[in-house]
Amino acid sequence: MKQHLIVLDLDGTLLTDQKVISPKTKAILNQARNDGHQVMIATGRPYRASEIYYRELGLHTPIVNFNGAFVHHPDDKHWGLHHTPIGLDVVHEVVESMHAFDFHNIVAEVMDDVYVHHHDEKLMDIFSFGDPSITTGDLRNYLKTDPTSMLIHAPYEKVHAIHDHLSEVHAEVIDHRRWGAPWHVIELVRSGMNKAVGIDRVAKSLGIAKEHIIAFGDEDNDLEMLDFAGVGVAMGNAIEPLKNIANEITLTNNEDGIAELLMDRLKLTL
Results as ranks from 00 to 15, higher is better:
His4Met: 02
Ile6Arg: 00
Ile6Trp: 03
Leu8Trp: 03
Gly12Arg: 01
Gly12Asp: 04
Leu14Arg: 00
Gln18Leu: 15
Ile21His: 11
Leu29Cys: 04
Arg33Asn: 05
Arg33Gly: 03
Arg33Cys: 01
Asp35Asn: 13
Gly36Cys: 05
Gly36Phe: 09
His37Arg: 01
Gln38Glu: 15
Gln38Val: 08
Pro46Asp: 08
Tyr54Phe: 01
Arg55Thr: 12
Glu56Asp: 10
His60Ser: 14
Thr61Ala: 05
Asn65Ile: 11
Phe66Gly: 00
Phe70Val: 13
Phe70Pro: 02
His72Lys: 11
His73Gln: 05
Lys77Gln: 13
Lys77Asn: 11
Trp79Tyr: 04
Gly80Asn: 10
Thr84Asn: 12
Pro85Tyr: 01
Leu88Pro: 05
Asp89Val: 10
Asp89His: 11
Asp89Cys: 09
Asp89Phe: 13
Val94Gln: 05
Met98His: 07
Asp102His: 12
Asp102Thr: 13
Asp102Ile: 11
Asn105Arg: 07
Asn105Met: 05
Val107Lys: 06
Ala108Glu: 07
Ala108Arg: 06
Asp112Ile: 06
Asp113Arg: 13
Val114Glu: 06
Val114Trp: 14
Val116Ile: 09
Glu121Thr: 11
Leu123Ile: 14
Asp125Pro: 09
Phe129Tyr: 15
Phe129Pro: 09
Thr135Cys: 07
Thr136Gln: 08
Asn141Lys: 12
Tyr142Gln: 12
Leu143Val: 02
Asp146Glu: 15
Ser149Glu: 12
Ser149Thr: 14
Leu151Ala: 15
Ala154Gly: 04
Lys158Arg: 13
Val159Arg: 14
Ile162Pro: 01
His163Ile: 10
Asp164Ser: 13
Asp164Lys: 15
Leu166Gln: 10
Glu168Tyr: 11
Val169Arg: 11
His170Val: 05
Val173Leu: 06
Ile174Pro: 02
His176Gln: 08
Arg177Thr: 15
Pro182Glu: 00
Trp183Ser: 05
Val185Gly: 08
Glu187Arg: 04
Val189Leu: 01
Arg190Ala: 08
Ala196Lys: 02
Ile199Trp: 08
Arg201Phe: 10
Ala203Glu: 08
Ser205Asn: 08
Ser205Gln: 08
Leu206Cys: 10
Gly207Leu: 06
Ala209Leu: 13
Ala209Phe: 13
His212Arg: 11
Ile213Glu: 02
Ile214Glu: 03
Ile214Tyr: 03
Ile214Ala: 00
Phe216Asp: 06
Asn221Ser: 07
Leu223Thr: 09
Glu224Trp: 10
Glu224Lys: 07
Phe228His: 09
Ala229Glu: 01
Gly230Tyr: 05
Gly232Asn: 04
Met235Asn: 03
Gly236Met: 07
Ala238Arg: 05
Ala238Asn: 00
Ile239Pro: 05
Glu240Thr: 15
Lys243Cys: 01
Asn247Lys: 06
Asn247Thr: 04
Thr250Ser: 00
Thr250Arg: 06
Leu251Tyr: 15
Leu251Gln: 12
Asn253Thr: 09
Asp256Gly: 00
Asp256Tyr: 03
Asp256Gln: 00
Gly257Asn: 02
Ile258Thr: 00
Ala259His: 01
Leu261Gly: 01
Asp264His: 10
Lys267His: 10
Lys267Gln: 10
Thr269Met: 04
Thr269Glu: 08
Leu270His: 14
